[in-house]
Structures are given as structure tokens and as C-alpha cells.
Design a binder for these strands. Structure first.
Lengths: 379, 379
DNA sequence: GTTTGTTAGTAAAGCTTACGAACAAACTAT
DNA sequence: ATAGTTTGTTCGTAAGCTTTACTAACAAAC
């Protein structure tokens, strides 16, 4: 008699569920299955999902009617029985626009296909714009991208720095001078296309999960002009009580002082790790030994800050995103060694720490994942 | 076209959903509504849930048939229209057995009603038992409790120390000498009643949420012979990648050394905070000023460990459970002040830190919540 | 070439679930 | 008395999935 959907971990039913919702869920389940496994027959999908062949045929008929799924011929194997008609998502029928607002001086965007592959790019220098001006640049960038698209657009995904609520309102984004800016709604009105706006680090975490092979209990640490993070717990992005989950840049780390931060506190994680600080420190170092020490210290600080988080959340993976020449190497090594030294090996001995495999496109692609999951229930 | 149930935050549909599952969900929704708001008419429930009166009548008929809901007479107000027939959960029809295995020397249990009120108690000294012997004592305790029950038993909930998986297998519980012990299954077989086994700190977090008025993004820190914690994020308990979420006792805290822990590391949270250590330190202190210093230092360490967690998770509340005379006062004050000093006031300025209001029964009652939620979808 | 058995996909019928329309019962207000 | 309001039920309908039974299309064995 266990109730609730999803993974059964949610304790309280919150809203009614009608048969049509169940239908939508099963519909997404079909697309999800096709998205992940590629070419399958109706019978394959039935076996995979547990639904009957009849129901799958019915759902697939709907999806074919909407041009979301196509038949791609018969399976060519030697086997008794009627040959299977292979299906796939109509991966070439729609395109997605992804936008990354998290870089310090540039807005970047891309046109992606349903597999998250980047088909075209555009960027726009921010040139110090803030407030309404900055939003106008987002709109201009999207317009450029829409022109580059060669298929109908499934939706627009935007990864924004700062604190973003579930409705895509940017509550605060200091660098852009935004407060309570309803970017998602504004863009949706402007372009009449579904829009999703999400925090940049959360987008990155989703991208790493969907495209980078990350596990379901993962933290993505994004190092740049500031330091932020995105969390995926049991496969679900964490937003936090005030949508500020992942904001670890201004957590004080260690009990031995440090530099004064722009926020006024002493020894914030950013004072050790943010790229301007790190670059400055490295520029002042004369020997390569000193440079190594600086990188080690930075990684150690990150490890000190993350150890309690790893312990509390039982993470299985930490992924770093940011300048490879700074992060990948001594710094990453110091981080994982510090975490190992400060947590229980029984639980966290096989914690993995690695660089992202998605490079600079991580936020773009995460924004695309949000569109996919929002519009198709697929990711 | 957004898919998925629950809060819409899960991204991937994982299993099929049939109409009967939707029915079960709505059924739980009705019970949930009655559980929280008490006496309501069918029409009230319909308004509350968004389902129609017809559907509610149908669901309620089922629930009355199962003796889970009863009619308790007509509403006595002066109003136009046909008088409403009030309903309520049949709170007196079933009882729950809750068991707390987390105390160092004693297994405690209770018979509870559906509101979580304790109707009777029993306990059994552990007397150093481990392994199979310890499990035999759990069974003996449950037998005693079943005899005390005066109504059919809805289920048995057990809060166990250690690492417990989703199937109620105690993967490791050092104090009890348990590894991979399938306690939930064993008890279910022995008593032929639904059983739920869950980690003690997770149970405590659930209890605090259901009965203690805690918010939905909360950490419960349980201080006793060891130090553990339970996390509720967006109202969902966090289990972690290896079911070890919340295990913060052996996270090293600070960068200035400390005492050596039984685990071999130096400066684990437990070396500052576990009650044996604290009591010993306090016994060695001569002046009350020294004692205050010790308590302050302990609280400060807890704050140092929690600050990154608060930042990463954007928690709104931290609840302490354990010996009031140690925790409530200087220690708690030091903790919250330390967290405040080490995180961003914009986000965490209104973080609340408080003692539990549920006292020593917190685990028992949390175990009961698991039974309620598992059997009725209510909590 | 025929028979046997398997697999894919469809069609029809039936069950469950929720809904809307309509209504009776029971009450208040005028 | 009459009109209006609210509750809860009955009846018929639409949606969604299942079961059952079918056709189509093939391989293997004779």
C-alpha cells in the first residue's frame, strides 16, 4: 500500500493525480527509454517499461502523431517471428537553444540538437552591462541563435549566475545587477517558446549527470570569478530553502584566518579559490615550487570545506568545472587527499573527484537538459 | 507538458504509473488531509484537494469500508444548505509500535496512536548484547509491546543506529555488532506485520518534521555516545549514495589539531561533542568559567562543521537532539553564532537553531512516522 | 513445400478511475 | 410559503490500461 510516485522517498502526497497525469508520465517513460537506448521496437519498450505492447503502441501512435517519434525501418537480424519495426526519438526534428550567462564578461549561447550536441554558437560581450541592458543582451543573443536554428525550437534554456527560484526568477545576481528579475517569463513572452531559467551551477550539475556520466549523488564545484556549486542528490537537483543551495563561495574555511573577502569576512572559500585571487597569487610566486604550494593550499581549503558536506550527504562524486590549468593537477589532488584525510574511509574511500569532461559548454548543455526534461520529460 | 509527480523536481520517470497507482495517491491525499486538518466533510476534502465531491465520496467509501475513516456526526453550525457529515481518520482503530535502538545501553519501545501520542512504554537493558543476541532482544521488546497494544497494530517502526539501507537492512552498526542484518525482513516474518527499519537520526528528523514543527529543509543533529545527523531536504529524507548520509561524527573539524579519535583521526567532531568526551572534559574543569569555555568550544566546533553544510544545502533550520543540560545554552549559542559568522547573512541570517521539542522520544516517534507514511501515506 | 512455433503489432472488450450533470435532502433567509 | 444554498448521491461518460484474441511475418525442421 506504499503510496507516492517517483522513488517512493517522498512522504506526503501533495496534489491530486488524474489518469491523464499517469498518461503523461508513461509517455515520458517511453521517450526516456528511447532517448537513452536509441533504436527500439514497440515490443522492446514494452518489455523495458513493464507496460503492455498495446499501451506502448497507443502511446507511440500519439508520439508519432506529434512528430516526436519516428519509425526508422525494420530490424535486420536473423530470428524467428515477425521482424520488429524500430523506433527512435525524432532527434532531428527539433533543436534547443542554450544560454550561459555565468561568464564574467561574455554571454554565450548555442543551438543544440536533442542529444545535446552543439550545432552552432553565438556570443555577445557583456561590456559591463547590468540590469535592463544586460537582459536586452540576452534577448539579442537568443535572437541570433534563433536565426541560426534550422529546425523548430523545442525551448530555450538559460543558466544564470546568482539565486534563481523555481519559476525562473533571478532573485539576486550581483554581477548582472539583477534582483527579482523574472527572466523566464520575460523571455517566454518575448519569444513565445517554452523557457527555463536555472542557476548556472545547477545546470552544470545536470549536464554532467546527463552527458558526463556523473552519478546520482554528486556535487559540481564551479570555479571562476566566484565559486559556486550545484548538487544532485538521488538524481534530483537540490534548490534549498531559499533557492540558494550550492552557494559555498562565502563559507569561511579553516580556523586559521586568511585573506579578507569582498564580503567582509576573513577566509571565505573564494579568497583561496576564485580565479582572480589564484592568478594573482601565482603571479606573485617566483618559483614553481611556490606555485605548487599555492595550488596545493587552494585545493586543501576546498577539501576542508567539502569534507563536512561529503560526510553529511554521502556523496559519491565531486566534479570540478573551471580553468583546467588551475584546477586539474595539484589542486584537485590536494582536494581529494584532504577530503579523504578528513572523512571516514569506510564510507568515502571510493569518492571520486575529477574534472568535468564537458569543458566550457557545461552550462549551455545543462540548460538544454532542462529544456529536454521540461518539454519531453527526458534527460 | 511537464511530467513527473511529486514536486516536479525529479527529472526522469523511472517506472510505469497505472490508474490504480493514481488512485492510491489520491487515497493517501484524502487521508493526509484528514490527518492534518482533522474533522472535515467530504465537500471540504473536495475543495481542499481539487478532486470532485463524487470522487471524494467514492474514496471515502473505500476508506470507511476498511475502517480507516469514520463518520463522526454532523457539523453543528448555523448555515444555509444541507448540514455536512463530518469525517475523521479512525484514530482509535489502530496503534503503532515504535522502537529506538540508538541508546547506548537500552532498547526502548512504545505503543503509539495514529497521532504519535505514546500510550505505553517498554524497555530492555542491552547488557552488552551484540549480533544475534541483540536482535533477540529487539524481538522480545516488540513482543512485550504487542501485548500492551489494545488495538490492531498498523505496523512496527524501528530506528536503528548505523547505516541502514532502503530495505531496512542494517549494513553496519558497530555498537550492536551488526553487519548486513536484514532486521526489517526478519521482524516482518516473525510478526507478520508491516515493518520499517530506518536510521535513528533520519527517524528523528522525520519526527521533528511531523510533530516538532520543523521546516522542510532541516538537519537534525543527534548528540549522544556518538554524533550523527538526519537530513530533510525539500521534505524528503536524504539517504545518500551508500545510505550513509548524516554520518558527520567522524568528520575532522578545523585546521588546528585536536584530540585523537577512536577512529584514528585527529579532531573528529565526536572528540569535541560526544557526551562521554564532553562529560569527561567538564568533570576535569574546576571553575564554571572553564566549563562554559568547554561548552563554547564544543558548540563552535559543531558550527565550523555545519557552516559548509548550511551553505551548500541552504538549510533553514538545525535541530539538536541529546542531553539538554549539555546542548541547550552555551553550546547551542556558540553553534549558531559560529555558523552565522561563517556563512552569508543574506542567505542564512534567518537560520534557526534550536533544541528538539520531542525529548527522548524523538526516535520512537520518528519510527512511527515511517509506519504511518508507509501504511497510510500519511505523516 | 509444409508444418510448427515464435515474435510483432493490432483490435475488441472490459475494468478502473475520475468527471459532469442532475437531483434529493436539509437547511437558512426573506 | 418560497427562494436560495450546500451536501452528498446517482447516472452516464470519457480516458487509460489490461486481457484476450487475432493477423502478419518470420525461422527451423521435416
Amino acid at each position: 500500500m506504499n503510496q507516492g510516485f517517483g522513488n517512493g522517498r517522498e512522504l506526503r502526497p501533495t496534489t491530486k493525480v488524474l489518469p491523464e497525469h499517469a498518461r503523461g508520465h508513461n509517455r515520458s517513460l517511453v521517450m526516456q527509454t528511447l532517448y537513452r537506448e536509441g533504436q527500439l521496437s514497440r515490443a522492446d519498450i514494452a518489455r523495458e517499461t513493464g507496460l503492455t505492447r498495446v499501451t506502448i503502441s497507443d502511446l507511440v501512435a500519439d508520439l508519432i502523431g506529434e512528430n516526436l517519434v519516428i519509425e526508422i525501418g525494420q530490424r535486420e537480424d536473423v530470428r524467428p517471428g515477425k521482424p520488429a519495426t524500430l523506433l527512435d526519438l525524432n532527434r532531428d526534428a527539433f533543436q534547443i537553444i542554450g544560454v550561459d550567462l555565468s561568464e564574467y564578461a561574455t554571454f554565450r549561447g548555442a543551438v543544440l540538437d536533442l542529444d545535446g550536441k552543439i550545432l552552432g554558437r553565438a556570443e555577445l560581450p557583456l561590456a559591463g552591462s547590468t540590469g535592463e541592458d544586460a537582459q536586452a543582451k540576452v534577448i539579442a543573443l537568443v535572437e541570433t541563435l534563433i536565426e541560426k536554428a534550422t529546425r523548430p525550437i523545442l525551448g530555450i534554456g538559460v543558466g544564470s549566475p546568482g539565486v534563481v527560484d523555481l519559476a525562473g526568477v533571478v532573485l539576486t545576481a550581483p554581477n548582472l545587477g539583477w534582483t527579482n528579475r523574472s527572466l523566464q517569463r520575460d523571455l517566454a513572452v518575448r519569444f513565445s517558446i517554452p523557457v527555463v531559467v536555472i542557476n548556472d551551477a545547477n545546470a552544470a550539475a545536470l549536464a554532467e549527470h546527463s552527458f558526463g556520466g556523473a552519478t546520482s549523488d554528486m556535487m559540481l564545484v564551479k570555479v571562476g570569478h566566484g565559486v559556486g556549486s550545484g548538487l544532485l542528490l538521488a538524481g534530483i537537483p537540490l534548490f534549498g530553502s531559499r533557492f540558494a543551495a550550492g552557494e559555498i563561495g562565502h563559507v569561511v574555511v579553516g580556523t586559521d584566518g586568511g585573506l579578507t573577502c569582498v564580503c567582509g569576512k576573513v577566509g571565505c572559500l573564494e579568497t583561496w579559490l576564485a580565479t582572480p585571487r589564484l592568478d594573482a597569487a601565482l603571479a606573485n610566486a617566483s618559483t614553481s615550487e611556490q606555485k605548487e604550494q599555492i595550488l596545493w593550499a587552494a585545493g586543501e581549503r576546498l577539501g576542508i570545506a567539502l569534507a563536512p558536506v561529503v560526510g553529511a550527504l554521502d556523496l559519491s562524486e565531486i566534479v570540478l568545472s573551471g580553468p583546467t590549468q588551475l584546477l586539474d593537477g595539484t589542486l584537485a589532488r590536494a582536494t581529494i587527499e584532504t577530503i579523504r584525510a578528513r572523512t571516514m574511509p569506510e564510507f568515502h574511500g571510493n569518492l571520486v573527484l575529477r574534472m568535468t569532461t564537458l569543458g566550457e559548454d557545461i552550462v549551455l548543455r545543462g540548460a538544454a537538459v532542462m529544456v529536454l526534461s521540461g518539454q519531453l520529460g527526458v534527460s
